[in-house]
Design a protein around this nucleic acid. Structure first.
Lengths: 258, 258
DNA sequence: CGACCTTTTGAACGTATTCAACCGATGTGG
DNA sequence: CCACATCGGTTGAATACGTTCAAAAGGTCG
């Protein structure tokens, strides 16, 4: 048995302004410019001269506690969401009740795109960690993006990114063995933590083995076994939710055909 | 051995205007209004008063012969595509050379959305059947959709639909057994043929067992075996590319947990 | 008409799943 | 504060499913 390690939990993001508070709707007027997520969030790629306009879009903040839903399948679509702090998972349920986790979302990533098609959401989105969510009314976003080409472009890009991401996941689900899937999953998390300024090699998982398995098309026991195997081989150190990546090269190699 | 059946191949769509021909660029000005794909294509959902504007977008037609690429991974993105006749497959290739078919496209469906993100296409798209493609310059589409809210809405909807479609496929790849996958695949094709006015129960596959397998995350032998099994049980009749669905109910039942 | 590609089918194999037991951490109520 | 219940995670053994390897037949296209 290896010694336990202490991995600091990811610190909370900056606390937003609370001026002009309504009842349960808190206005956060110039939030975006002080948010620190600029590089990964909506304003990214939009010129500074339009930041103000974007800030007007995010007219409402919402707190979603761990275990609560941001939205549910069948809910009427009216807004897109991003968030400063917290962690979400999204999942689909089929007619006959099978469920599949479609993604885990980190601060700055967009949620709600599944609802545009037919004005109803087709997934459930639940917080795995308390979250501060920025609500972007779709009607307003559409209106503004018609006036600000950069914003339109950015919105399209985000949707396209989601499509490309999904294709990547399909490739993983369609062609990789269990070891490759888990390795790819860990490397993906690592990269996304790094993009947010956290350690690329040490982090805490926010989800259970079962949720990982659902995401990767594996059973929870298989995920557990693969993690144990990686640990035996010295590729990672895993203690429950705490993960330390010890050999990124070998982990990457696992994603090749193996 | 059952007797061979003759399945009519899907008739070609209407032949577009060719007035105002350039060199290899053929202008097809009021193509959309006479195309017959309205219900499934770009103009769908956009008021008649704007049809003309949309027709201006499709300023170029392109012929892509069977086996030729519409675009390739890495190609610079500049346009979205739809088509009146033909059949395409799209696929991704990973760093280490594994490939995965991400979709089979029928007339009226949109191609190219994967390229918006970083101005490069991330997939290869190849014709499985000679095709007449409508090229929609992205810059123009973006410009027009800023002026025509219905068009903007419709564009967003198409991207969202692609996202939702991909999630459905992920669910299939992540949770279904071989029989369920193949059944779901056949039913999906059936539905899409029906939406285009063709028989829902009799059609010719345009793709090989290997391509089906790549799409479904199975090997070609497995696809072949499942089809044989379905045939023995009287769910379908399959003779090479010709498919006849004999029991939609039982086929649907295959997609439930089995 | 001939070469090549696609499809089918069989048999052996390997990988992930299933079922089950156990452990440890977390949280609740007495 | 401790006892207990619950949940999440690990591990083992047997099983089931899809893959791999191989051979042969049937189609298709130049």
């Amino acid at each position: 048995m290896q010694p336990a390690i202490a991995i600091r939990s990811i610190p909370s993001g900056p606390v937003p302004d609370r001026r002009g508070a309504g009842n349960n709707v808190v206005r956060v007027s110039n939030a975006c410019s002080s948010c620190g997520l600029g590089a990964v969030c909506l304003p990214c790629g939009v010129g500074n001269e339009h930041i103000e306009a974007i800030e007007q879009l995010v007219y409402q903040r919402k707190r979603v506690k761990r275990g609560e839903f941001l939205y549910r399948s069948g809910d009427r679509f009216h807004a897109l969401y991003t968030f400063r702090t917290g962690f979400f998972k999204s999942y689909m349920t089929s007619e006959d009740g099978r469920t599949h986790v479609t993604g885990f979302q980190m601060p700055g990533e967009i949620l709600g795109l599944d609802g545009i098609e037919d004005e109803r959401h087709s997934q459930d989105v639940v917080a795995l960690e308390d979250a501060e969510v920025c609500v972007i009314e779709y009607a307003q976003l559409a209106q503004l993006s018609a006036k600000v080409p950069d914003l339109q472009r950015h919105l399209h890009r985000m949707m396209s990114r989601e499509i490309v991401r999904d294709h990547g996941l399909m490739l993983l689900l369609g062609t990789m063995r269990a070891d490759g899937r888990v390795a790819a999953f860990l490397l993906n998390l690592s990269q996304r933590f790094a993009a947010r300024g956290y350690s690329a090699s040490e982090f805490n998982l926010r989800m259970t083995r079962e949720e990982i398995g659902s995401y990767l098309g594996l059973k929870l026991e298989t995920v557990s076994r693969v993690l144990s195997r990686f640990q035996e081989r010295g590729l990672i150190y895993a203690q429950n939710r705490a993960i330390r990546l010890l050999d990124l090269g070998k982990l990457k190699a696992e994603t090749f055909d193996a």
